Structure formats: C-alpha cells, structure tokens
Amino acid sequence: MEGPGQMKILITEPLDFSNENLKLLKEVAEVKIGPFTRMELIKEIEDMEVLILRLNHFIDREVFLKADNLQYILTPTTGLNHIDLEEAAARNIEIISLIGETEFLATIPSTGEHTWALLLSLLRKIPQGFDHVKKGGWERDQFKAHNLCHYTLGLLGFGRVGKQIAEYAKVFKMPFVFYDINPELRDHPNACNSLEELLKKIDILSIHIPLNDQNSQFLNGSNLTHLKRGTYIVNTSRGELIDEDYIAEALKAKELGGYATDVLANEIIREKRKENPLMKIAATVDNLIITPHIAGATYESMWKTEEFVIRKWLKNLDTSNNTWPKMR
C-alpha cells in the first residue's frame, strides 16, 4: 500500500460533498473532483487507485478496462446495481459500501421518510391536485380519499426501513403486516408465513428488500395477481425487484390503485430509462408517481453515509494514524 499523500482518489459526484469528508481524504491522498461525463470518467480513472461515487454512473467493463490501478470503490449505498460486480471481483477491486451495516443504517431516516411521502402523495392524490390547481381548477370532490387507518399496510422486508415504516404506520393508527425470510421474525405477531399470505391481506404494499442475484423480478405476474384490485404499491428499494411491464399494464387497466416509485430498472443508463415501460406511460396515467432516486438524498444522510464509507476505507489503509476526528 502506498503511503499517505501518494494515493489518487477520484470523486465523481462532488455536489454538496462535505468539506470535513474532503479533508479526511486529502490527509491520505491526492484527490481529483468531478463532475464528469462518462467519457471524462473513463479518461480520468486511468491512474486512480480509489473511486468514490454515488448513483450517477454505471461502472461497467468499459470503465474497468481503463482502470488498471483501481483498488477500491467507495459507494455510500445499500445497493450495488450501478457496479458490474463480476468485473470488480475479477480485478480484485474491493467495494466498500453500506451493505450489512445495520447498526449504522438505523440512524439514517431519509429513505423511510421519502417512502412515507410517496405513500401519502399517492393515496391523497397530491400531485394530481396540484396539477389541477395549476390549470385553474379548485374542485375538491375530484380528489377524495380514505383515512390511512382504513388501509392495511404490507411490508415486504422487515429490516431497517421496513421497521421505520411500521413505526410511521402506528402513528397513523394503520394496521400492518410483513413478510421477511429472516427466521428470527417468524414469531412476530405481525408476520406473514408466505408472500402469498401477505399479498392477499393488504391494501398497500411497500417494498423493502435488497436486490441480489436471486430476486430479480421477485414481484411478478404470478404473485402480484394475489393483490386485491385497487391495491397501492410503493417502491424505494430497486426497480429490478418488480416486473415493471406488468405494473404498467395494471396501471393502465386500473387494476392497481397506484404505483409510487423512487427507482426504475436500469435507471442509470439514459437510453434504457427512456424505454422503461413506466416512463412510457407516465404522461398518460394519473395513478403513477416517479421520483429520480432521491429517497436517500438529504444533506445530513449523504454527509453521514459518505463519512462512514470513507472511515471504513481508512481502516484498510496501512497507516498508524489513529487520530481521525470522531464521526459527527
């Protein structure tokens, strides 16, 4: 390992990157800061040992072919579908992320907050109401809804975010159930024994499972048919977890009450995003909300998560410097 000041770090998305975190990096390395286009990134990465990125770039074989010196990728995310993991592994590049950092992630509320904002926006028809007003309307009867306590909320996944959403549900006096493969949760009074049982019981489905190689399109036409007609779905996990073609058709047919998502399959690649079935119908249906993967994008959460992965990386360095400032 090279000594302090000799390593080279590339930060792809520096907007609102904290000065404190930048100072930490500059104490051990030479830092180059973007933002970069994809072609600029491919050029700049050639002599870099460390890459720090959020979610604006897809790091694939084309990038790796130019990254002969790359040793680490730091990404303050709980998903890694913006990185070609097979290519990274073949090149012995260590990826430092937030995966598995349960205790730390419990202190980060931003994704849970945005999930609840999407849920409220979808059920109370807030975007449609604002569009109506912008056009000069003021007809409240067009936007009647139900109190949340009349809905049963279903949580797919009862980890960090799922538990946060359950707490919000309690505040709104909303009954909730969940399905999770963790055997330690089977005796929980709100646990369902199967996905089918969950889907049959609920009026709203909120998705909180991580994407992995085994669960692409975990929710699809064969199991989503168990939902009641008019069910609402909220997704702040990953777009690849659900069959978006099925969702698009169900929205057009009004079989679903609505779908609110912060994520899309292949969202980073602009050409694929444009061809996404949900993007294609977004302007023609009134029961769809899409936000551009902003659930984790609060200043405080981004500063804390970036600091966490930086410090996690620093522990890997061959240095005797044990005087790093404490985390805020």
Rank of each mutant, 00 (worst) to 15 (best):
A169T: 06
G100E: 13
K304L: 12
E267K: 00
R328F: 09
V171C: 05
K228I: 03
R140L: 13
K170H: 02
E306P: 10
P14N: 01
T152P: 11
M39A: 00
N276M: 06
D16T: 07
L119F: 03
V31R: 15
Y232G: 14
I310Q: 05
G296A: 05
V31K: 15
A283T: 06
L224M: 11
P210M: 13
I207W: 02
L195W: 00
E101P: 00
N81W: 00
K125Y: 04
P277W: 01
T102E: 13
K23E: 15
L25E: 10
D203C: 04
L74K: 08
T323K: 13
Q6H: 08
D47I: 01
I294D: 07
K280E: 02
L119T: 10
A265F: 06
F36G: 11
F104H: 00
L122K: 12
I290D: 12
Y232E: 04
F17P: 13
I73T: 06
I242Y: 01
R270F: 08
T107F: 01
I83Y: 07
D47P: 04
H146F: 12
D131K: 15
I202E: 00
S97G: 15
K326R: 10
D245M: 08
T78M: 12
L70H: 13
H188A: 02
E306H: 14
L105F: 01
S320D: 05
N147E: 09
D16S: 13
E49P: 09
L264G: 02
Y246D: 06
R229L: 15
P210G: 08
T107H: 03
K280R: 12
L10R: 05
A250N: 02
N322D: 02
T291A: 14
D47T: 07
E300A: 03
V31S: 13
G221C: 05
A253R: 12
W313H: 07
G162L: 07
I247Q: 06
N287F: 00
K304H: 00
M327W: 03
W116T: 05
N215C: 07
K144Y: 02
M1E: 06
E94A: 07
E62H: 10
L51P: 15
H114G: 05
M48R: 10
E30C: 09
W324A: 06
T236S: 11
G79C: 12
G100Y: 02
T77N: 08
H114R: 08
V31L: 12
W324D: 14
I42A: 03
G239F: 01
N56K: 14
A297L: 02
L118H: 04
K135P: 05
L205M: 08
I181C: 02
I99Y: 00
K32N: 07
D68H: 12
E30P: 12
Q142S: 15
V263G: 13
F64R: 15
N276Q: 02
L120N: 05
A117I: 08
K228Y: 01
T305P: 10
E271M: 12
N316H: 14
I73V: 13
